[in-house]
Design a protein around this nucleic acid. Structure first.
Lengths: 339, 339
DNA sequence: TTGAAAGCGCTAACAG
DNA sequence: CTGTTAGCGCTTTCAA
C-alpha cells in the first residue's frame, strides 16, 4: 500500500502477490474458476492487510449505496430516537447504513433534507412528516421516480407509500373511556395541527370515546396547538382558565403532556385531584415525573423495525401494493389519572 | 436519461447537448475556458434536469467521502442526541454528512462500530467512549493510520487526540459545596466505573469539594455503579440503607440522577427534606420531575459543535498539536437541594 | 485457470 | 475554447 493511502485495494493485493486484479477479485468472491491454493493465498493476504471492499466503487458499479435516509421531526425526543434505533437494527442486519436528518418540524428543512439525502444517493427514504408539512410535492417526486419511500407515525399518500402507524383512534378512545370510568366528566384534549394524520385520528378517537360514554362534546374543551412546549403550555392555560375548566386532560404527545403537567402544577393545581392527566409518552419518562403519568406507550422500537422491514420489502418488490402496518398501543395506568 | 436510472449524469447532459463530457464538467464548475454561452446553456440544462454530482464518483476520485462517523454510547439519551445535533449543524455547514452508530455502552459494539464506519470510508470519527472501554487498540489503529479522530465527554489518549470535555472536577466541586452551604453534611456520591475519565474527574472534584468545606471523606458514602438505571437504583439503595445514611446525594449523570430519585421516593423518603439530590441533567427533564432537580447542565449542543470544529481543524491541519477544549458547566439550583 | 478491457461518474492533464 | 484520455476501485464479459 502506498503511503498516504488509508485503505488497501485489490490492486495492492494483486501487485503484492503478482497476479491480476481480476484474479484477486474472483478469489475473494470464491469464484470456482480460481484454483483453491491461489484463492487461499489471496484470501489470507487480504485478511492480513485488512482489506475491505471500497463501497464507493461498489456503489458506482452497482448503482446501490446500501444507505437509507431517515428524516425525523427532531432528534432529541425519545420517541424518535427509539424509532431510529429500531430502524438501525434491521438495517444493520441487512448490511445497510442509515443517514439521519432532522426536519426540526419545519417544511423547509424537510424539503432540504429530502434533497440532501437524495444527493448522497441513498437508496430510499424512511420519513416522519414535520408538523408543518401539508403539501407533498417533494415526496411525489420520489414516488414518480420509484425511489423507495416509507412513512411512519405522521403519514400521507397512503395507498401509494407503505406506512407504519399506531391505532391512534383506538388509543384516544382508550384514554377517554379510562377517564370516564374513573369518574371524570369534563374531559379536555390538547390536539395538534389539523392536517397531521395522527392529530385527526386521535381527535376522532376522542370524539367517539366521548360518544360511547354518553358524554356530550364541548368544543371549548378541545384545544389545538403546534407541537412546541410553549404553545402547549398556553393551550393548557386556556383550558384551565375556562369558566368551567376540565377535570381531566389528555395531551397528544410527549412534549405536550409534560408541558401540560408543568402548567397545571405552576397554577397550584393538584394532579389528579384537581385535574387528571394522561399523555402519550414512553415508559421511562412517565415514571420519573410526579405524579407518575398514565400514558399511552408506543411500541417505538418495533415501529422502527417495521418501517425498515417495509423499506426492504419495497426494494425487493417495488411493484407490490404498499403495506399499511398498524401497531397497537397500550394504556398504562399510573397515578396521574386515578383519584 | 435512460429509464431505470434515477440520477442524471454528466454523460446524459453531454449527449443531450452534443458536447463532450469534459465540457459539461467544466461548464458546471465555471471553468473560465468554456465560452459563456455554452456555459449558460449547460448550466440551464443541468438545472432543468435536476443534475447533482454523484458523490460516489467524487469520493472515488478525490478519496474523500465527506462523511464523518459518530459513535455514542446510546441514542436515546438527551445528552447524546443533543450533542449529535451540534455535530450535525457544523458538519452540514461544511457540506459533510454524519453517520451515527451506537455502542450501546459495550466495548464489543464499539469496536464493531469503528470497523463498520471505516468500511464505509468515513473520513474520520467523533467518539464518546462506551462505559466498558478500557483498552484502546481499536483507536490506536486509527491514530497510527492518521485517520482523524476526536473524543468528547469520555475520552482517552489525550495529547494524541483532540478532545472536548467539560470541567468535571469543577462541576463536582460546585455540587459538593452547594450541598455544604445548604446545611448538608453527609454528602453521598454515586460514581461510575473507575476507568472513565469523567468518573475519575468528578470523584476528584467530590473529594476536593469535601476538603475545601472541611468535611471528612467517608468511603461508605462513595458508591459506584455501572451507568445503567438498575445498577444506580441498587447503589442508591445501599446508600440509603447505611446505618448513617447520607442527607444529600449526587449522581454522576442523567440516568443515575433519575434512578436515584425513583429509589428515594419508593422508600417513602422526601426530597430534599430527608435526602437532597443533585444530578447532571438537561434543562428540560430537570424541571419536569418533582421536585425540580438541581443539576449541572452541560452545554451539550456546544460540545457537539466544538467536537465537529476540532474534527475539521484536524482534517485541515493533521500535524498540529491536538486541542483539548474544556467547556464550563452551570449549577442550576432548584428545589431538590434546598430545604 | 487466468488476464485484459470496459464501464460505473467524475476530474484533470494533455492535445489540439 | 473544446475534446481525448487516464484513472479512482471494483465486477464482469470476452479472450486466451
Amino acid at each position: 500500500m502506498e503511503k498516504g493511502k488509508r485503505h488497501v485495494s485489490l490492486k495492492d493485493l494483486a501487485n503484492e502477490i503478482g497476479v491480476s486484479i481480476s484474479t484477486v477479485s474472483r478469489a475473494l468472491n470464491n469464484h470456482p474458476d480460481i484454483s483453491p491454493e491461489v484463492t487461499r493465498k489471496i484470501q489470507q493476504l487480504a485478511a492480513a492487510r485488512n482489506y475491505t471492499p471500497n463501497p464507493l466503487a461498489m456503489g458506482l458499479l452497482k448503482q446501490a449505496t446500501r444507505m437509507i435516509g431517515v428524516i425525523v421531526p427532531d432528534l432529541v425526543t425519545h420517541f424518535y430516537s427509539s424509532i431510529i434505533s429500531g430502524i438501525e437494527q434491521v438495517a444493520e442486519e441487512k448490511g445497510y447504513y442509515i443517514l439521519i436528518a432532522s426536519s426540526n418540524e419545519t417544511l423547509q428543512k424537510e424539503i432540504k433534507a429530502v434533497n440532501n439525502l437524495l444527493k448522497t444517493r441513498v437508496e430510499g427514504l424512511i420519513v416522519c412528516l414535520s408538523q408543518e408539512t401539508r403539501s407533498y410535492e417533494h415526496f411525489d417526486r420520489l414516488i414518480q421516480n420509484q425511489i423507495p419511500l416509507v412513512f411512519f407515525d405522521r403519514v400521507c399518500r397512503m395507498g401509494e407509500v407503505p406506512t407504519v402507524v399506531v391505532d391512534n383512534e383506538d388509543a384516544a378512545q382508550k384514554i377517554t373511556r379510562h377517564f370516564y370510568r374513573n369518574g371524570f366528566r369534563r374531559i379536555g384534549y390538547i390536539a395538534g395541527p389539523d392536517h397531521l394524520s395522527i392529530s385527526q385520528e386521535r381527535t376522532r378517537g376522542y370524539l367517539s370515546g366521548l360518544k360511547s360514554c354518553g358524554l356530550e362534546f364541548r368544543p371549548e374543551l378541545l384545544e389545538k396547538c403546534n407541537l412546541s412546549s410553549n404553545d402547549a403550555i398556553e393551550a393548557t392555560g386556556r383550558l384551565l382558565s375556562l369558566p368551567e375548566p376540565p377535570d381531566a386532560i389528555f395531551g397528544i404527545n410527549d412534549t405536550i403532556a409534560f408541558a401540560a403537567m408543568k402548567e397545571i402544577k405552576s397554577r397550584g393545581l393538584r394532579i389528579p385531584e384537581d385535574v387528571a392527566l394522561v399523555g402519550f409518552t414512553d415508559e421511562f419518562h412517565s415514571t420519573v415525573v410526579d405524579p407518575a403519568l398514565t400514558s399511552i406507550t408506543h411500541p417505538t422500537f418495533e415501529m422502527g423495525q417495521e418501517a425498515a422491514r417495509l423499506f426492504f420489502k419495497r426494494i425487493e418488490n417495488p411493484e407490490a401494493k404498499p403495506d399499511q402496518v398498524v401497531l397497537n398501543t397500550k394504556l398504562v395506568v399510573r397515578k396521574s389519572s386515578v383519584k
